[in-house]
Design a protein around this nucleic acid. Structure first.
Lengths: 203, 203
DNA sequence: ATCGGCATGTAGACAGTGTCTACTTTATCG
DNA sequence: CGATAAAGTAGACACTGTCTACATGCCGAT
């Protein structure tokens, strides 16, 4: 057993992990390929063999966050009945955002590396939204009258916006500067879901 | 008339303007005090006489964005009747977000400089949210039965979350990667306001 | 077994950045 | 008019991304 780290067997994977650790500990602005290299005990150029640029490493992390997010939405919401499916997915969405604030911030709270340059990242993002839309479609189809595709998208966007707004406000630094009681903050996710339910019930 | 710029009479103000221009043209990541200095034709240390750090310059811009935002909320929403006041403010909120995407992004779409270090910025942010809450309180008081303070905050937070979510999704790069029709996108602000109205009507 | 080639990692360089410090200019006020 | 404080200049340092030339080691074909 050695105290000093070996050269990591899989440097690429090690970079991703170390980069996540850096962002979690010291913030996004401290993420640099040189810092990653330093922590892993390799030369400052080594990570560039695996990531063409710092943004490509970041994009990899973000893509994985989207993938994990989509999976959380998918598995948790499938456990419930279609009619209440939307509520389950909403809960899954907000739960994920609150339990994985780092991932959520990376997806929605920080400027993404230029989307056009990182197609895999965008593919994962699209997949997550597709799940939301499909889920909503299923919920509507099971319960209520048919709704045309455009109206469905409108509702999906509204729901997404409300959940995203709730999650990102709760995760923001700003919200804690405003004097809101703890119970209001703690109850906000459920309240938002309730309000979404009320708004949709009237359609 | 000279082609070459004079040394600006008020360097502090000139820095703020130039910084906004840089962010607007080249993005937040290109904002540096050295670039500001270069554009203004002064030495690279000069801006540091007015801003202790790059983040202090950024915080100044953000604080002004919050102030302008609060003013937009205030003046536009005061033009209408209290009962419909909330709708007016919601419209003002979303209009501002769409008409001043740079300001909105600076406030909500990019990581803020550490709030604790920039109290004036946070003061302005608090002021903006206070307006929203006061406005909602007035709308409720005028129309419906009395609501306790906690419930009021819950609703204010929900409304804010929905509007913020709508605005920030529409302003995000991500949304254009997803295939939503133009009419859905264009109608999203009104639709969100309608849904908020429906949700609140049931209380 | 050996040789060649290719992926991987190393080391150095360059430009750009924030931020510090010492110096010079400027202007303002007693 | 001259002292004094503010404003701007210039140079330094450490840090970053990114490029390049070079070393190393592994793996497969001969």
């Amino acid at each position: 057993m050695r105290e000093v780290k070996d050269r990591p067997a899989n440097l690429r994977e090690a970079c991703v992990e170390e980069a996540r650790a850096i962002v979690a500990e010291d913030g996004l602005e401290k993420l640099s390929l040189r810092e990653v290299a330093r922590r892993l005990g390799v030369s400052h150029g080594a990570p560039y063999r695996h990531f063409p640029s710092r943004d490509h490493l970041l994009a990899e992390i973000v893509a994985r966050a989207f993938a994990a997010f989509a999976e959380a939405l998918d598995t948790r919401s499938q456990k419930s009945e279609p009619p209440q499916d939307f509520g389950a997915m909403g809960r899954a969405y907000l739960t994920y955002a609150l339990e994985q604030p780092l991932n959520y911030r990376l997806m929605f709270g920080t400027p993404l590396p230029a989307p056009a340059d990182h197609p895999e990242m965008m593919r994962q993002a699209r997949h997550a939204f597709a799940l939301l839309r499909e889920n909503l479609k299923a919920a509507h189809a099971a319960g209520h009258r048919p709704v045309d595709a455009e109206e469905l998208d409108r509702h999906a966007l509204f729901i997404w916006a409300t959940m995203h707004g709730t999650a990102s406000l709760l995760a923001s630094d700003a919200i804690r500067q405003i004097d809101l009681s703890d119970s209001v903050l703690a109850g906000a996710p459920e309240h938002s879901l309730t309000m979404i339910g009320r708004a949709l019930a009237l359609c």
